[in-house]
Design a protein around this nucleic acid. Structure first.
Length: 298
DNA sequence: AACCCCCCCAACCGCCGCTTG
DNA sequence: CCAAGCGGCGGTTGGGGGGGT
């Protein structure tokens, strides 16, 4: 089926909007409200495409729009959400009040993509396991570099914990590696841990749905299931067994096994002392998504 | 001062899913 | 049920500003 274009391609204004056009659009929307953009384009006396009117309103004229001056907190959130969601600009923007998907996308492409690449967690999650890193070495590394998550730590925008100064360089390193490779510097895949296990991991996405207030669609959930199946198949191919072990003493734990290789055991509910990087990342993730309680209870 | 090049970002484009008649 | 319309999204483009020579 060939769609008709949203408006005539000839004889309409294109390019930058003038202040007069902005004023006309603002006044029209004030009177008639948002939506029915084709009617806006026709009736407001704007010689513009309906989509152009919508875009102009949503990205620049709408009340409450913040422009420029992306803060460090916002940048940090963008990086982390991009690591989680990939190029889902609308979802990411939904987490940043006043910011538009277009601005986030532009900011990423101009300021962050060069540093963090174009990794998309949805498509690039690879199950890796660093066989060269022993458990003791790994734990020493964590002990030296990661401080425990303090439930009383100060929160930034949208309840995001503000990183401690000493955490930033390490986390930046790991984020870079994670976003580039789908794993951190130790070869651990931080996202695929969410892609394995039972369907109750879907509750994580459902919680994101609630948190975002925007909706994780059935399509998202289907993709999530597809991802889970793909990761399981990939692990099977690599001879990697991933399982979740629930102990009887009330402390749940996740175990990551690589057949014939070292094992890294991640204790969930561990609140002090040595918190492994994976746990720290997921806890921080849960925390800035306001899911800390859910995560701790697991 | 003039020219060139690079980069930013506002805007466009095409595709998709949902809604409507 | 189907076709067309509509809104939303992400990828891409190109105008223009700024810096370098």
């Amino acid at each position: 089926m060939v769609r008709s274009p949203c408006c005539a391609k000839v004889g309409i204004n294109k390019g930058a909007w003038s202040s007069q056009e902005d004023e006309i659009l603002i006044n029209y929307v004030k009177i008639h409200g948002e939506g029915k953009w084709r009617k806006v384009a026709q009736n407001a006396g704007l010689n513009r495409c309906a989509k152009s009117c919508r875009l102009r309103w949503l990205n620049y004229l709408r009340p409450g729009i913040k422009r420029g001056d992306i803060t460090k907190d916002e940048e940090d959130l963008i990086i982390r959400l991009h690591g989680l969601l990939g190029n889902r600009w609308a979802l990411i923007a939904g987490r940043l009040p006043g910011r538009t998907d277009n601005e986030i996308k532009n900011y990423w492409n101009t300021n962050l993509a060069k540093n963090f690449g174009s990794f998309s967690s949805r498509s690039s999650c690879k199950m890796k396991f660093d066989q060269d890193l022993g458990i003791q070495e790994y734990q020493d590394h964590i002990t030296m570099n990661h401080s425990p998550v303090d439930p009383n730590e100060p929160l930034g925008i949208s309840g995001i914990p503000i990183l401690k100064e000493e955490e930033k360089p390490l986390l930046a390193n790991e984020s870079t590696s994670f976003i580039k490779n789908g794993s951190n510097d130790h070869g651990q895949d931080m996202f695929s841990s969410l892609l394995v296990g039972d369907d109750d991991d879907l509750s994580f996405l459902m919680s994101i749905d609630t948190d975002f207030g925007e909706g994780v669609t059935d399509f998202d959930l289907q993709l999530f299931r597809d991802d889970q199946a793909a990761v399981r198949q990939e692990n099977d191919d690599l001879g990697i067994i991933v399982s979740r072990v629930d102990s009887n003493d009330g402390i749940s734990s996740s175990s990551l096994h690589s057949s014939g290789h070292d094992q890294v055991k991640v204790e969930r509910g561990l609140m002090s002392g040595q918190i492994p990087s994976l746990h720290l990342e997921l806890k921080k993730l849960a925390s800035f998504l306001d899911l800390e309680d859910d995560w701790t209870e697991l």
